[in-house]
Design a protein around this nucleic acid. Structure first.
Lengths: 246, 246
DNA sequence: CGAGCACTTGATCGCTTTCAATAGCTGTGG
DNA sequence: CCACAGCTATTGAAAGCGATCAAGTGCTCG
């Protein structure tokens, strides 16, 4: 993590410049954002926000992965979102946080104090418009996940998760989407279970089964090779390849 | 259904005027909307939009209930949203529909041709801002539902659904939220199953069980009395009363 | 009166959970 | 250097919950 370097970084050099909430901003608007932004870093496993807390800031994930989770009184937890670089955290116009946010890997956040950001958004349609677009995308993702949670088998759930991670990796990697994909799992078995609505034992079993059937290859616990994405998509129960390949 | 009357209705008299996407519009803006809007009615069971179709319009549900569903090739379906009066249908800035939309009860929609609406939105922050707000609310609802789908038991799922319907009824009814609630189920057992990620047999069994245990009373198949909302909320597994009562 | 539909109820099956033991890895301290 | 604690992950055996298969009820409508 190069947080110290980042804390002086200009928005123009920002790695998520073209995908985050500020994607549509012009030079003047960026200048304003520059004035109210600050960076924060979190180590893997650390909480970022507690559900119910007053939100003093909103912001974007610059690097690393964070998770959004809900917990019931008896301890059952469900991950309701995975936050990747450029994803937005916090809801303008609301006081308290609705979910727990935690760093899954080491995370760097670009934060804005909430009030100034809200004021800036009021008079900057570029930001409001981009935020609407991002929120609609998240809503689509959440609804896609509802199908996974409600109707897919354990094996299909695992395959769906691996496919999503592979796809996201493809968008960040030069070379992009190919039929053979190699990536590292950013989640523990328990985090995968929380995301998929399963137990960690079932996750482990199904990963072993996919490995035995040659759908995936494992090196260590986290390094995954998918020799044939098409087969993985079939296992996920998605129609055709979900648009993964051209 | 009084669609003929509605087709001449002015926005000022609209029953969802203060909650829909046009909630923040001033008189001039309403005038513009008035010019591009038209009403359409759908009978219970009819499709409104097919997933993948080109969307020619967007719009608001004026009365009745519509459902948003996803379907896998093998026929498994998951409802991903319930559209109530004032809810918005369609996504500005996207060509095709992502989900099937169908009328669950008889439905009246206030429609806008997509292009003119998008243009109007570009120069009307009041609309864009309200749409962002509504989308954020829907995202919260979707995430709450992810917890239901991923982690709750069949009995808790049914209780959660009944609680949500009761709560929505309370917001529309004079008198509002009380500890004793009476309402009609707007969904068939099958639709409830699709929403909850269950089979219709399990839905039926759990409703019978809740009845046997005195959590609910049934008159016919659809008319529900909840003698004690607190008990229902407990069955749903929600912390305390979910803010239902003051 | 019979067809069609929504719903209920029963019996059985099987997938996922639960409970439990073990393996592999990393870091710490004797 | 090895022992041991602590953590993540794997694997096995048994239990339970919801799905599946199947029959039957009650209602509406032609």
């Amino acid at each position: 993590m190069n947080a110290p370097a980042l804390s002086q970084a200009r928005c123009g050099d920002c790695p998520i410049r073209h995908r985050a909430v500020c994607a549509r901003c012009n030079a003047d608007e960026l200048e304003e954002l520059d004035g109210i932004k600050y960076y924060r870093t979190y180590e893997a496993g650390q909480p970022i926000i507690w559900s119910g807390d007053v939100m003093n800031f909103v912001g974007s994930v610059v690097s690393g992965i964070a998770s959004l989770t809900q917990t019931m009184e008896d301890g059952r937890t469900q991950m309701v979102g995975l936050l990747l670089p450029s994803d937005f955290v916090g809801r303008p116009g609301r006081e308290g946080a609705a979910y727990d946010v935690a760093a899954t890997t080491d995370v760097v956040m670009c934060c804005f104090r909430k009030k100034p950001f809200e004021e800036l958004m009021e008079r900057t349609p570029h930001i409001a418009h981009r935020l609407l677009e991002m929120t609609l995308d998240e809503l689509d993702a959440a609804r896609e996940w509802m199908l996974v949670l409600g109707r897919k088998t354990a094996r299909e759930k695992i395959a769906s998760l691996l496919a999503i991670i592979a796809r996201r990796d493809a968008t960040l990697t030069p070379g992009g989407a190919t039929n053979r994909m190699v990536f590292d799992l950013p989640l523990t078995r328990e985090a995968m279970a929380d995301y998929l609505g399963l137990t960690l034992e079932t996750v482990s079993r199904q990963i072993s089964a996919l490995k035995k059937d040659g759908i995936i290859e494992l090196e260590g616990k986290r390094h995954v090779t998918v020799p044939d994405m098409r087969r993985l998509m079939e296992e996920a129960g998605d129609d055709s390849d979900g648009g993964f390949l051209g």
